[in-house]
Structure formats: structure tokens, C-alpha cells
Computed example of a mutant assay.
Amino acid sequence: MIRGLYTSATGLLAAQTQSEVVGDNVVNLKTSGYKEQTASNISFPSMLIQRMGGNEASEVVEVGEMGRGVGVDRLAMSNVQGSLETTDINTDLALTSPGYFVVQTPGGERYTRNGHFQLDGDGMLRTADGYSLQGEAGPIGPLSSEFSVSADGTIMDQGQRVDQIRVVEIPVDALQREGQSLYIANQPVQAAVGAVRQGAVEASNVDLAGQMIQMMTVMKAYEANQKIIQTQDEMLGKAVNEVGKI
């Protein structure tokens, strides 16, 4: 019975983690370039239950297997491309192909599909957090407000070729999220030929209806485990207060 309490508790913890992931997805519904995440559960190894004493005192009778609960195995990211939203803002860029923009942060290179960039006071193209967008030759800039970006990522400004936006390809399972739309790669990245659209951004790929269904499923699982814990607690109370008197 005590084991049952622990098993139900693992179910509560797994449901809580899943609800946090769903909540994070919903919060980032309007975050450009955000990729939906899902939490997958894994069962703990089952335990073989045996009963001592069958027809003979020394006989061992196999009762069967008993589950030991569940846990969250890992977070998986959906790499489905979000819809493109036209903004007509010169510094907004969207990737219409697989791959990621490269930005330089104090902690090193990071990767993103959030194309909300802006020009700083020195004409350098940066993210909203101040991280510089990287080209083949390094940080991109200085640029005038009239720069243009071709479909292959080539940047032209005042009739001169400035640089080409650096795009890399990374397997989705090699990405680790940092913040809302930045990622770290846990393996070497490969250069990719990116297709860039200026004056647009990629929207979040979160499916709101799907997240609402997932949230209801998680809530039902949480409530079911709560009910089981309450039932087992009542049974323990009777075992202690009533059966113990006999």
C-alpha cells in the first residue's frame, strides 16, 4: 500500500511537469520563432511480486508485475515551421527553409529562428537582447536603414555587397533551449543554404487547440492520481485504526 502512494506521487510529479511545459508553450504563443515542446513520460522498471507459501510452506507463488510509477523522460521540440507574418519592417527576417540564424552572445554562439532584429546606434544588426547577428564575415554591419536582403541571405547596402547571413543546420535532438527562442547545440553545426525573406518573421508553431486538449488530459491524470492517493490514505487509516484493534 505504501508503494502505491509512491507510485501515485510519481504520477503527480510527471503531470505537474507536463502542465508546466504546456503553460510555457501557451505563454510563448506570440513569441516569434518559438518551437513547441512536449514532455514524454517513461515508466520505471516493473517489480516482480511473489507470494511466499503456497500448498507448501517453502513454495513461492508468482503474483505478477507491479508498476513503480512514471517520470518525464525528456522534452522534445517540434521542428515544424511556423507561419510567416509579413511586417514590412526592413530589419525583420524570416527563414523559409530549415536552419537557424547564428547570433553571438557573451556565452558564445547561439541559434534562433526569431527574426525580430534591429539596428543599434552603430548600425549593427542585433536581436532585441542586443546579440549581434552573424554573417559569413562576422557581425553584420554597419548598415544604413535602407539595406536589402536577397533570398539567399546576401546583404546589399548602398549598392555594395556587405555580407551574407550565416545559416546553420542542426538536428532537432541536438538542440537545447536557452530562454524563449535561443538554442545551444550539443554537437558541431553544419553550414546550410538558407532561404531568407525580408520584412517578415516566423510566428510560433504552437498549436493552441492541441495545447488545450493536452492540458485537459494532464489535469485528468493529475486528478486521478490525487484520487488514488486519497483512497490509499483512507485504507491505511482503517488498517491502523480498525484492523489494528483486532
Rank of each mutant, 00 (worst) to 15 (best):
Ile2Pro: 06
Gly4Met: 06
Ala14Gly: 01
Val21Lys: 04
Val22Pro: 00
Gly23Ile: 02
Asn25Leu: 01
Asn25Cys: 01
Val26Ser: 04
Asn28Ala: 01
Leu29Gly: 03
Leu29Thr: 14
Thr38His: 11
Ala39His: 04
Ile42Ala: 15
Ser43Ile: 07
Met47Gln: 15
Leu48Cys: 05
Arg51Gln: 15
Met52Gln: 14
Asn55Ala: 11
Val61Glu: 11
Val61Gln: 13
Val63Tyr: 10
Val70Asn: 01
Val72Phe: 07
Leu75Asn: 00
Met77Asn: 07
Val80Gln: 15
Thr86Gly: 01
Thr87Asp: 08
Asp88Glu: 15
Ile89His: 13
Ile89Tyr: 11
Thr91His: 14
Ala94Leu: 03
Leu95Gln: 09
Ser97Trp: 06
Ser97Gly: 08
Pro98Ile: 09
Gly99Val: 10
Tyr111Asn: 07
Thr112Cys: 09
Arg113Phe: 00
Gly123Ser: 09
Gly123Arg: 09
Asp129Arg: 11
Asp129Gly: 13
Tyr131Val: 03
Tyr131Glu: 07
Ser132Ile: 03
Ser132Asn: 06
Ser132His: 10
Gly135Asn: 08
Glu136Ser: 02
Ala137Gln: 14
Ser145Glu: 15
Glu146Ile: 04
Asp152His: 00
Ile155Trp: 12
Gln158Thr: 09
Gln158Phe: 08
Gly159Lys: 08
Gln160Thr: 14
Val167Ser: 00
Val168Gln: 01
Ile170Met: 03
Pro171Trp: 12
Asp173Lys: 09
Asp173Ile: 05
Ala174His: 10
Glu178Lys: 05
Gln180Pro: 00
Gln180Ile: 04
Leu182Lys: 00
Ile184His: 04
Asn186Ile: 14
Gln187Arg: 13
Gln190Lys: 09
Ala191Asn: 12
Ala192Glu: 03
Val193Tyr: 04
Gly194Glu: 07
Arg197Gln: 14
Gly199Val: 10
Val201Ile: 15
Val201Pro: 03
Glu202Leu: 11
Ser204Gln: 08
Ser204Ile: 07
Asn205Thr: 12
Asn205Ile: 14
Gly210Val: 05
Met212Phe: 15
Ile213Arg: 11
Thr217Met: 13
Met219Asp: 07
Lys220Met: 10
Lys220Asn: 10
Ala224Asp: 10
Ala224Asn: 12
Asn225Phe: 08
Thr231Trp: 01
Gln232Asp: 10
Gln232Trp: 05
Asp233Gln: 12
Leu236Ile: 15
Lys238Ala: 12
Ala239Val: 15
Ala239Tyr: 14
